[in-house]
Computed example of a mutant assay.
Amino acid sequence: MELAAYTELIKLIPCEDQAFETKRKTWEPYKNCVAFKEFYKHTFSNKDTVIFSRRDLFSFAETDAYKAIFAIILWGYPKGYTLGFNMPILFPRLLNQVEFLLENLKSERFITDEDFKLLISNCDGIGLSTLSKLLYFFKIEINKKKCLIMDSRIVRILRKDNFTELNSLSKVNEHNSINYYTDYLRVCTQLSNEYGYKPDQLELFLFMFGNNLKQLL
Rank of each mutant, 00 (worst) to 15 (best):
F116S: 02
K106I: 06
I111Q: 00
K117N: 12
L119C: 05
E114W: 00
D124Y: 08
N122P: 08
T112G: 06
L94R: 09
F110D: 06
L118Y: 10
I111S: 01
T112Y: 00
D124H: 11
L118K: 15
L119G: 00
L101R: 07
T112L: 00
L105Y: 02
K117W: 02
F116Q: 03
L105D: 01
R93S: 12
N122Q: 13
E108L: 12
D115Y: 02
E103G: 10
N122W: 04
L101I: 10
F110Q: 13
D124F: 12
F100Q: 05
L105A: 08
L118A: 12
N104C: 07
V98H: 00
P92Q: 02
I120K: 11
P92M: 06
E99Q: 15
L118G: 05
R109N: 08
D113Q: 10
F100I: 04
C123T: 12
Q97A: 08
N122Y: 07
E108T: 15
P92N: 04
P92S: 01
E99C: 13
F110K: 15
E114G: 04
N122L: 05
R93T: 10
I120S: 03
D124I: 13
V98A: 01
C123L: 14
C123W: 07
K117E: 15
S107R: 07
D113T: 15
F116W: 02
N96G: 12
S121R: 11
C123D: 06
L118V: 08
F100N: 07
D124L: 03
P92R: 01
T112K: 05
D115M: 01
N96E: 14
R93W: 13
E108W: 06
T112C: 03
F116V: 09
L105R: 04
L119A: 04
D113C: 07
R109H: 12
L118I: 14
L94Q: 10
F110N: 15
I111H: 00
L101D: 02
E99T: 14
L118H: 11
L101G: 02
F100L: 09
R93P: 06
E108V: 15
E108Q: 14
K106L: 03
K106R: 09
S121F: 04
L102H: 11
L105I: 07
E108Y: 10
L119K: 09
I120R: 08
R93C: 08
F116H: 02
T112W: 00
T112R: 03
L119E: 02
K106V: 10
E114M: 07
Q97D: 12
C123K: 11
L102E: 14
L101A: 08
K117G: 06
L102M: 09
V98L: 05
L119F: 11
L102S: 11
R93I: 13
D115L: 02
K106C: 11
L102Y: 01
E114V: 10
L119Y: 11
L95C: 15
V98F: 00
D113G: 03
E108S: 14
L95N: 10
I120Y: 03
T112S: 14
L118W: 02
I111W: 00
S107I: 07
S121H: 09
N96Q: 14
L95T: 13
L119D: 01
F116K: 04
E103H: 09
F100W: 07
I111G: 00
E114Y: 03
V98S: 02
N104I: 12
S121L: 04
E103F: 04
L95M: 15
E114Q: 11
K106T: 15
E103I: 06
K117D: 07
D113H: 03
N96C: 09
D113F: 00
L119R: 10
L94M: 13
K106P: 01
L118S: 13
